[in-house]
Design a protein around this nucleic acid. Structure first.
Length: 489
RNA sequence: GGUCGGUUGGCCGAGUGGCUAGGCAGCGGUCUGCAAAACCGUUUACGGCGGUUCGAAUCCGCCAUCGACCUCCA
């Protein structure tokens, strides 16, 4: 491809040149949401981060197969007595089918992602639709000798694995350290070691989501679906695996162990992790209860929010920070982003109407180089945006007549903003159309009110002129006893 | 307790050795009948101490402090 993209690989803790296994094809797997709750700002960050990766790789010319799963089988909860499935628990609470809960939140997730202009992935597999694949994977791991059955459940044998492979290499953990600091969890008495994790869990009688297997009527373990589905759709070895930093351990560590145990080799080339959104310096998360849902942001209906924020403001806010940094939420910060975005969009509108005047130097070409350098440097969107704001100053200067630009450079500049703002960053000025509608409504009503006044003066020449002129513009006026109706033809 | 990562100006947020990121706010100005908007210009910084260096926000050491993960979590 034409550019040198580097990405920070969590596995090596270094920025590495991105070289796909089978260029121009790229395989990317990202951990999607567990659909038992409304999506919040943290979900948006992960989705937008990997949307940026997806968009940029596509822009560079790669053909990307982007797989993002939906976790609908549910994970174990530590506060439950007998290892209760999250989705099942919620379903009992609401007295509806588990899959109904799944469907509802899945729809909600898609709805809000669309608002944020997050492109849909190429494949979006459901864990519940891949039980057979997961069972097959368990069998492989059992055959390889890295798992054992116990009372209808199957556990991964970490000690055995660690004899042959380095467990903890992704998260920098050492097995001995883990041994010294583990907590009491469900099913501990069934395990050989309390840090072993479940591949298959026998369902308790009150458990609603369960499937048959040779071991028991039960459900697959926490980490299995990603291993099973990534290899199914991307092959035994693929380029990128992404997710939130909080998934690094144990989730992704266990994924590596499962895959290596089953196939003898690692599948992922580049591990990418986005950092967390914080509130007052603390992680925004489900367990802390300090999260704000996307719906709440869009409506402003939350005690911590001073106003509603548009999807694009949220997206821009997230893109103004580098994906590997924590990003602290506050109304002040969000409003700053909102205003900055308005300024950027205003300049783009100016740019579209700009007149070329004479000559200009190398400015645009240099700007283009800088923009590519920024985004190719581990997806540094804040630097890219900073460069785009530098360009805003040029656009305004030309518009004010302080600078000149040649026709060719103008076209290049217009393409530059179209490429980086629209295609790569995925930002669109959607408020324009809505504003325009309101504007038209207001204008037409104002004119028609003036027409009523003309009629009241019996100035029918003026009132007919207004009606005819509006008709020419495609607006049909219908008089009523108490006023008027109008509609667009 | 272990592993990892932060600490940048009023706020957010970039930046791995010299070339003062950027946005918002503030301040000054242009424009305007007034106002607003818009545009232009612009001040304030690198947690503390010590070290390496001609030169450090940037490298090293110590200390302080905050956080993430170690349990479901984007």
């Amino acid at each position: 491809m034409k550019h040198q993209l580097t990405v920070y690989n969590s596995l090596t803790r270094k920025k590495e040149l991105f070289v796909p296994l089978h260029s121009p094809f790229v395989g990317m797997y990202v951990c999607g949401p567990t659909v038992y709750g409304d999506p919040h700002l943290g979900h948006a960050r992960s989705a937008i981060t990997f949307d940026l990766v997806f968009r940029h790789l596509s822009h560079l010319g790669y053909k990307v197969r982007y797989v993002r799963n939906i976790t609908d089988v549910g994970h174990l909860e530590n506060d439950a007595d007998e290892g209760e499935d999250k989705i099942a628990k919620k379903a009992r609470l609401e007295q509806i089918e588990p899959m109904e809960v799944v469907q509802y939140y899945n729809n909600r997730y898609h709805h809000f992602m669309e608002k944020l202009l997050v492109l849909p992935p190429s494949i979006e597999p459901l864990a519940s639709g891949h039980i057979i694949e997961q069972i097959q994977l368990i069998e492989k791991i059992l055959e390889a000798g890295y798992a054992y059955e116990s009372n209808g459940s199957v556990y991964f044998d970490i000690q055995k694995y660690n004899e042959n492979y380095p467990y903890g290499k992704l998260s920098g953990r050492v097995l001995d350290d883990l041994l010294s600091f583990t907590r009491e969890l469900d099913g501990q008495q069934e395990k050989r070691n309390n840090f072993d994790f479940a591949l298959w869990k026998k369902a308790s009688p009150e458990h609603l989501m369960h499937w048959p297997s040779k071991w028991s009527e039960g459900f697959p373990g926490w980490h299995l679906e990603c291993s099973a589905m990534s290899s199914k759709y991307l092959g035994e070895e693929f380029d990128i695996h992404g997710g939130g930093m909080d998934l690094l351990f144990p989730h992704h560590e266990c994924e590596i162990a499962q895959t290596v145990a089953a196939s003898g080799k690692e599948s992922v080339r580049y591990w990418l992790h986005n950092n967390m959104i914080t509130v007052n310096g603390q992680k925004m998360g489900k367990s802390l209860g300090n999260f704000i849902t996307l719906e709440e942001f869009f409506t402003g209906n939350h005690k911590s929010l001073e106003k509603a924020y548009s999807p694009m403001a949220i997206r821009f806010f997230i893109l103004q920070a580098h994906y590997r940094s924590t990003l602290d939420f506050s109304n002040e910060a969000l409003q700053a982003s909102e205003k900055g975005l308005q300024r950027l969009f205003a300049a783009i509108k100016t740019l579209s109407q700009l007149k070329a005047t004479g000559t200009s130097g190398e400015y645009v070409a240099n700007l283009r180089v800088k923009c590519y350098e920024a985004i190719n440097d581990d997806l540094n969107s804040p630097i890219l945006i900073a460069h785009l704001f530098d360009g805003v100053r040029l656009i305004n200067a030309v518009n004010d007549g302080h600078e000149s630009i040649s026709p060719e450079e103008l076209e290049n500049l217009q393409n530059l903003y179209k490429t980086f703002v629209g295609e790569v960053l995925g930002l669109q000025d959607e408020t324009a159309s809505e504003t325009d509608v309101q504007l038209i409504d207001g204008l037409v009503n104002m004119v028609l009110e003036m027409r009523i006044e003309a009629k009241n003066r019996k100035d029918f020449a003026a009132s007919d002129q207004i009606r005819n002129r509006l008709l020419q513009l495609g607006i049909e006026v219908k008089d009523r006893k108490d006023g008027f109706d109008w509609s667009k033809k």
